[in-house]
Design a protein around this nucleic acid. Structure first.
Ligand SMILES: [Mn+2]
Ligand SMILES: [Mn+2]
Length: 553
DNA sequence: GGGCATTCCG
DNA sequence: TTCACACGTTCCG
DNA sequence: GAACGTGTGTCTCGGAATGCCCGG
């Protein structure tokens, strides 16, 4: 039986209104004003009122600025045909205190707004022409210390458009600061379609005022870390100083704070600051924080404490990663402390070595071809196959209207998907789904129905382009339901831990069998999360293989 | 002038 | 705003 | 072998414009 697919909407046929972005911006503002007014400061509430009273031109100009990067703009670069009277709009915005002309004389503020040619010309220094951007900036800065800023620069009107109010609205609307107004456009153009869950009045991303400021700070720290700066002790001090100390049980807040603390502590390790790192890790709920903490204790010459923490971790360890860490690290510590270690069986798996001649393509594709020569067909899918099946099977649970799970219209997964309570909150729905499978015959139609009705809807686990209708048919035909069920149940038990680590290939031979195959190049080895899956396959009689490629040179 | 990254836009 | 994976180097017992 | 750092392809799309660098 074939799986048919709804045709996607024709992207070309969609034409947006000239003021599409203003409509979207207004939707965002009113959504927040309706749901979160109890969190807004006086200033933020006034912002909404003030904005609403502006002329359409002024609203458009301000929104256009918010859509751009940064808070400083050259007036001559703000050109929009749909704005009738830019100068009048600007006057309005300045009167409303939403925009001001830049007063700062600081070079660093305006220098990025000019390109090299403009700077060379404005300073009338043709000898600077061949400098690289970085060098040129140094000369400009030095020159401005002793001279007036050239008229050619001053002649440009530079606008300062503070975005802190908008950032608050954006944070409350999305529940994060990574999404922005382009979400609306992508949806309107039909490039992205979201599941139509309902968002109740009580389903809020943030519930305390203090969390707003804390989350903003965490986002700034996250951007700092992501920019990979040169970590000097001073910079690190400043960063750590900024970590919010707010006591809140909000999982959103704790998760993001834990991530920042972990990243900064890890950076302290690289700087050799093990003592400080060891102070930080216990404050983080990051899944690797306990391991790093113990490593730091060992570096700090506290093997007894490290041993104690390691035994504690061993008793509580649930993840394969923690267990294998305990296994290797206790040997190292035991030697030092003359302790004895329990005899544990470590993971082992046989590899099949094959010899191939070098090609231009990836080793995975080489093995796909090799398998095809043996008969049958192989797909390079990594995690996408079983994550997609997981989504298809448990879709109704994943997108169930649970309070707090969905708080903006552009989510690809519920907010609590990585929490242990995810399953408990959806217990009855998940049970109903499982009951469908009691007689073992309904699962195919359940999966097919979901595939057909939800096809192309955005879900962080569903990879529609990777698992096309043909592959889905093959899967349903060749993979026994009991295997599919075991694997997807495992993903359900901890989506965060088990959404990765699945092998490279899925292979279907000519005798109706399937097999999960990990390809390893000459210098590559199984990673921990890959071992965890193979361990699971071994214990559950799921067909699996590791193929080691050797190139004949 | 080509190659590449970033930004803006719909 | 990654994240998942592969690959190369260094270090140590 | 263990541990670490880094590179690469996914990136929520795809095109146009801009800016920078580098080699001819
Ligand atoms: Mn792989
Ligand atoms: Mn592989």
């Amino acid at each position: 039986m074939e799986v048919s697919i709804n045709l996607e909407t024709n992207v070309e046929s969609v034409v947006l209104q000239p003021d599409y972005y203003l409509s979207n911006f207004k939707i965002l503002l009113s959504f927040v004003a309706d749901r979160y007014s109890f969190l807004l400061s006086e200033k933020e509430s006034r912002f909404y009122k003030t904005f609403s009273c502006l002329s359409a031109d002024a609203q458009k100009l301000l929104t256009r600025c918010y859509m751009r990067k940064g808070q400083l703009f050259r007036l001559d670069k703000l050109n929009y045909t749909e704005i009738n009277d830019k100068d009048e709009a600007l006057k309005e915005l300045i009167n409303a205190n939403l925009v001001s002309e830049l007063e700062s004389q600081s070079v660093a503020d305006w220098i990025t707004l000019f390109n090299k040619a403009e700077l060379v010309k404005a300073f009338n220094k043709s000898e600077w022409k061949n400098f690289k951007r970085k060098e040129l900036e140094l000369f400009v800065i030095e020159f401005c210390e002793n001279h007036d800023i050239p008229q050619a620069i001053i002649d440009h009107t530079i606008l300062f458009v503070p975005s802190d109010n908008f950032e608050t609205y954006r944070l409350l609307f999305f529940g994060n600061l990574r999404q922005d107004l382009t979400e609306f456009v992508l949806q309107d153009l039909g490039l992205m379609t979201y599941e139509s869950y309902s968002i109740s009045d009580k389903s809020l991303a943030i519930k305390n005022r203090d969390e707003i400021d804390a989350l903003k700070t965490l986002h700034e720290l996250s951007e700092l870390i992501h920019s990979r700066p040169e970590w000097t002790p001073e910079l690190m001090d400043q960063a750590i100083e900024r970590i919010p100390q707010l006591q809140s049980q909000s999982t959103l807040y704790l998760r993001r704070r834990s991530k920042i603390i972990y990243a900064l502590a890890r950076e302290n390790e690289r700087m050799g600051e093990y003592a400080r790192a060891a102070e930080m890790y216990p404050q983080s709920q990051h899944e690797l924080a306990r391991e790093r903490y113990i490593r730091c204790l060992e570096k700090l010459n506290k093997p007894e404490l490290a041993w104690y923490e390691l035994q504690k971790l061993d008793a509580e360890a649930t993840s394969f990663h923690d267990k294998s860490f305990v296994l290797t690290f206790e040997k190292k510590l035991a030697k030092r402390l003359r302790e004895t270690v329990k005899n544990r069986t470590s993971f082992y798996i046989e590899e099949q070595a094959i010899q191939l001649s070098r090609s231009q393509r990836s080793v995975e594709l080489d093995v796909c071809d090799w398998l095809a020569q043996q008969g049958g067909v192989a797909y390079w899918t990594e995690n996408s196959v079983f994550n997609t099946l997981f989504a298809l099977i448990y879709w109704q649970g994943i997108f169930e209207d649970i309070e707090g799970a969905f708080y903006n219209p552009f989510q690809t997964q519920p907010a609590d998907i990585y929490e242990p309570l995810f399953i408990t909150r959806r217990e009855s729905t998940l049970l109903k789904i499982r009951q469908l499978f009691q007689d073992g015959s309904c699962f195919r139609s359940h999966i097919r129905d979901t595939y057909q009705s939800k096809y192309s809807l955005a879900c962080s686990f569903a990879h529609w382009q990777m698992v096309d209708a043909e592959l889905l048919d093959t899967l349903l035909e060749k993979v026994p339901f009991s295997d599919m069920d075991k694997i997807t149940q495992r993903i359900l038990s901890s989506p965060k831990e088990f959404r990765s680590g699945q092998p490279d290939l899925i292979y279907f031979d000519n005798n109706g069998n399937y097999e999960l195959i990990e390809v390893k190049g000459p210098g590559d080895r199984l990673q921990n999360n890959q071992k965890a899956w193979f361990d699971f396959y071994q214990k559950n009689n799921i067909p699996h293989r590791v193929i080691r490629v050797i190139y004949d040179d």
